[in-house]
Design a protein around this nucleic acid. Structure first.
Lengths: 349, 349
DNA sequence: CTGAAAGCGCTTACAG
DNA sequence: CTGAAAGCGCTTACAG
């Protein structure tokens, strides 16, 4: 195929090939070209063959903007993430993009900062582009008005991982509470008594449930966490915050048997803090996380954590969304995927 | 603002607010609405104020599809990645999305599989959507025809990290060869004699340069790698491949002083293999990687590696691309960002 | 089976 | 300063 095949001469300059070009060369109307290319019935075999031949000969490609504008249907999704460079969200994104591309949908990825204002802005630009649907992560209750506007506009969306009470939409995640319980019980079983939790954001319902679950798992063994009610209990889900809060906790509560991170990234910060203080894990203290990040089991000191099937959450979320785009209606579905406690080096003693 | 403000009644059903709605309510033509909203001169203050008031009262949002179709200008970029869930690409994506959103561009993220066919397909769907420009990673020479077609179509694009010879376009990356040299020299300095390289893909020019550099750095100290010419020298940049090839190398060459991964992910696989064989790092053998992934320095055994400023590469790439979209022309620029050898536990002896 | 025509929601010369 | 009209590239009833 020659390169020029994708363009058409037009008085010195050249432009992209349109249906009109195909129609003229094939000697038919653009309606017939459209019907042929969209595989609609009622085009004679002879014409159909000629149109296809001309179209591919010219290297014709349908203009998606025009198609979506006119038809009112879009095959584009929007995915809002706190931060792609966080492996947790990156894995979700992979799951979403994988299913979406398989079904012929393209996906916009946008970054939501810490503020809900930005989520509203992103949802706005998604609306401007008339996306077929959206997927949200890291939602908080403050996002409810934004989501309700989408419901009013009849734009389908899915909540991933975190849920927002009172907003009726499909949700995919895990049973964070149950995962927390299992982790708490494991710590009790291996004999931990003095336990601190260095949790995730206060306004994340997933973090909240993990924390409640872990407390419950410990409580059923008669253990109460040391830093209940302390400001170290919740914080940003980043390594620096885990590190800083681990140091505070170790300063405040002296000897600690176990430190639980609200997620693996926090737990890495906790491990850093232990290394910085000469606390040998798991001999002096055990450490656990939540998520099972792909790099949480590197080298000689692998992290105990609760596996969250991130990519699968992305898959299921995309499927839910595409269902609704294709006409499924009904109140919000809830899909709870399997989590699994992964006992590894950092609690192995 | 009421929810219904974003919609307009239309015989039982309701539709999104358009410029026509705004024009009618404001008692002006849609041309005037367009001129006002686009802040073009030549609209009286009185009319301007009225139009803005009506537009925001109605919750009007411009339809991006229509705008891009009619104006012929798009504020949308495409980013093709092997895999977002690979932290290296995730960081690049973060950099690109950060700058793009700051400049008012949205970005499509697509997954390129291992084959070049898929890259061509992705570039096709990007063209269909009339994107303003594209960014590519993980290019190989086989992608040259696809890229040349973009040049013919006058669609700007940027090559990130990997370069493709003979395709004139902006490129952003690091001096992989120099990074390799520094790493090789470091290994020689700490007394390594028996060195194996477990490199990246054969057809990645970045991996190739790293490998050549490392060999050169060793050679300048009179050291030749053990597995030169061996099939273990190149392979997939994934953990399993690093693990498998490390085992092969250790089987074939007996005692080895140093194992170099083509990137950190490969090096993690190498570390796993060492742990599996009871080889204590760095006592029995040292290990190094390339990239400085954020999780390459976790806990008690942090990986020696060469820092690649991934997010900054994304930033610079997006800036280059936006320059060209805004009219900059001229032959391909080359931006070499700073790398840095990070000496850590795995080579610390 | 095929085509002329209207229209999706905008932008853009061009008159007035 | 303002508006009527054409047109971006398609899709979609509707005639013939």
């Amino acid at each position: 195929m020659k390169h020029d095949d994708h363009r058409v001469k037009n008085g010195g300059h050249s432009r992209r090939v349109t249906m009109t070009d195909v129609a003229q060369l094939a000697g038919v109307s653009i309606a017939t070209v459209s019907n042929t290319l969209n595989e609609r019935p009622g085009v004679s075999d002879e014409v159909r063959a000629r149109v296809w031949a001309v179209a591919s000969g010219l290297g014709y490609r349908r203009n998606t903007l025009a198609q979506e504008l006119r038809s009112g249907f879009s095959k584009t999704l929007g995915l809002a993430l706190v931060d792609v460079s966080n492996p947790f969200y990156a894995d979700l994104a992979k799951g979403v993009i994988g299913v979406a591309e398989g079904e012929g949908y393209a996906v916009f990825v946008a970054h939501v900062g810490p503020s809900s204002d930005h989520l509203d802005e992103i949802s706005g630009t998604f609306l401007d582009r008339r996306l077929a649907g959206m997927l949200f992560t890291s939602l908080t209750n403050a996002d409810a008005p934004t989501l309700r506007r989408l419901i009013d506009l009849n734009v389908p969306f899915v909540k991933l991982v975190r849920d927002v009470a009172g907003v009726d939409a499909d949700w995919v995640g895990i049973d964070d509470f149950a995962g927390g319980v299992e982790l708490g019980q494991h710590l009790a079983e291996i004999g931990c008594q003095r336990v601190c939790i260095v949790g995730g954001p206060r306004d994340s319902n997933a973090s909240h449930n993990r924390l409640l679950g872990c407390k419950a798992g410990l409580a059923s063994n008669g253990i109460e966490i040391l830093n209940a009610g302390d400001e170290t209990l919740t914080g940003l889900p980043i390594r620096a915050s885990g590190n800083e809060r681990a140091h505070k906790v170790l300063d405040r509560f002296g000897r600690v048997d176990a430190l639980v991170g609200g997620n693996d990234v926090i737990a890495f910060g906790v491990l850093d803090a232990c290394a910085e203080r000469g606390i040998e894990v798991p001999r002096d203290a055990v450490v656990a996380g939540f998520d099972n990040m792909s790099l949480s089991h590197v080298g000689p000191l692998q992290l105990t954590t609760v596996d969250v099937p991130r990519e699968e959450i992305g898959h299921q979320g995309a499927r839910f969304l595409i269902d609704r785009i294709q006409g499924f209606s009904g109140s919000g579905r809830r899909k709870v995927l399997e989590h699994r406690l992964m006992i590894r080096d950092t609690t192995n003693r």
